[in-house]
């Protein structure tokens, strides 16, 4: 069971949330505008490690928040780290 802390409502099972993916980051090495758009539209960073990601507390306050999580341990980290 993954427990996710909603800043408004507190810690809830992840089933109460919708996962909103990470903030996409297209590498600077991709310079062509179309290629950047393909990357933005389709590609995933898929980081094995610490990510900044969005969660929506669907069963509670129905608001988005940003969380920092290590995808290798599923541990949530303080945002200001």
């Amino acid at each position: 069971m993954l427990w996710v802390e909603c800043p408004n409502c507190g810690s809830r099972p992840f089933e109460e949330y919708r996962y909103g993916n990470v903030f996409p980051v297209t590498p600077d090495t991709i310079t062509d505008a179309d290629a950047r758009n393909v990357d933005y539209a389709w590609m995933q960073d898929n980081i094995a490690g610490v990510t900044l990601e969005r969660w929506f507390h669907e069963s509670g306050c129905r608001r988005w928040f940003t969380a920092k999580r290590d995808t290798t341990s599923d541990e949530f980290l303080p945002l200001d780290d």
Binding site: M1, L2, P13, T51, E53, T71, S73, D74
Partner: peptide, 11 residues
Amino acid sequence: FASYRQATSFA
């Protein structure tokens, strides 16, 4: 949610 962790959940 995205994860690399091979954890089993009771949920």
